[in-house]
Structures are given as structure tokens and as C-alpha cells.
Amino acid sequence: MKPALIKSLVFIACLFPLIFGIWAGFTDQLGANPIEEITHRTGDWALRLLLITLAVTPLRRMLGWGWLLRVRRMLGLFAFFYACLHLLTYFVLDQFFDWDEILKDIIKRPYITIGFSAFVLLVPLAITSTNAMMRRLGKRWGQLHQLVYVIAVFGILHYLWLVKADYLLPLIHAAILLALLLVRVWYQRQSLPARGVAPQTP
């Protein structure tokens, strides 16, 4: 398959949650509390796409699918896109620009503090995702984009801390993140004696 075609297919696939969401909205399928439903859906997809982005490097090495690297940036940007929708839902639909309440939430509620931090940290990564920025930042680009690990951990904690009693889904996400991180440690250990340098694999 041509890289352009692959990219188009991934692009369309990443838009599916949004398209489904809008369709559900127009056909009255978001349930009794649509604002809550939209908040959950956009948050779910931001986190899922973040984990999928982090799965690119290990999958590429395991399966030898070189083309995966070409869609990594797009996946990451879609994670950011859904995180933006998630935050906008909270600002506009949930709080309706009640900045007092929003500020209080961000300061007082640990799950919101950490979720908001994760979003703030995503912003520089999105801004520096262009080819020009990659060239300009050189080595420092890789260092900056190591932040994605912090963001992923924050995202999982955000999920874990907002749940009332049923931790199953957040823990499944946490387990996937842990596996993705452990695979990286393992690869790093393997390549250390052979090459003598740590590979840059955000």
C-alpha cells in the first residue's frame, strides 16, 4: 500500500469516534445525560489514542512494519485533538465558562489538576510536531517528546482518581501503559551492549 493511502485510512479511522458521536447526538442516542456522555467519550478516545501512539514503536520493532512510523505523528495529534474536545466539553458544556468554578476545580480536585496538567504538557508536543520544528530542535526534540510518558501516566491517574468504585477499566489502561513502558526498557537493555548507545524511542 502507498504511504499516502495508509495515512488517509488512518485519518478516517481516527475521525470515526467523532463521526459516531455526532451521529449519536443527532439521533438522540447519547442517553439522559448527553454532556456526561460526550465528556466520557472524548476523554476515552484521547487516552486510547495516546496509548495507540505509544504502541507504534514496539509494534514496528516486533512486526517490522516500517509504515507505522509514518502515522505515529497523526495518531499523536488525534490524541491531542480528542483531548482538546474533552477539555472544551468541560469548559463549555459542563461548566459553561464559569471560570471561578473551573479554577477552583483545577486547584482543589486532584483528578482535574492532573488531567489539566496532562493537557498543558500535550500542547508543546503538538506545537513542535511539524517537520520544521523537528529540524530546528534537533536532539532536543527527542528529549522534549519524552514528555509523552509523563502525559500518559497523568492521563491514567486522571482516569483512576475520578472513578467511584469500579477500577477495572482504568486498571486495564494502566496495565497496557505499563506493558508499553516495560517493552521499551527491555529493548533498551538489549540494544545497550550491542550498540553502546540508548536509542531515542519516544
Binding site: 454532556i35 456526561e36 476545580d105 480536585r109
Partner: peptide, 9 residues
């Protein structure tokens, strides 16, 4: 402890 009870939807 984790969220405000001052308002409701």
C-alpha cells in the same frame, strides 16, 4: 472530597 456538591445538573 473529589468534587463539588454546590451545584447539580
Amino acid at each position: 472530597p473529589r468534587w463539588s456538591q454546590s451545584r447539580e445538573r
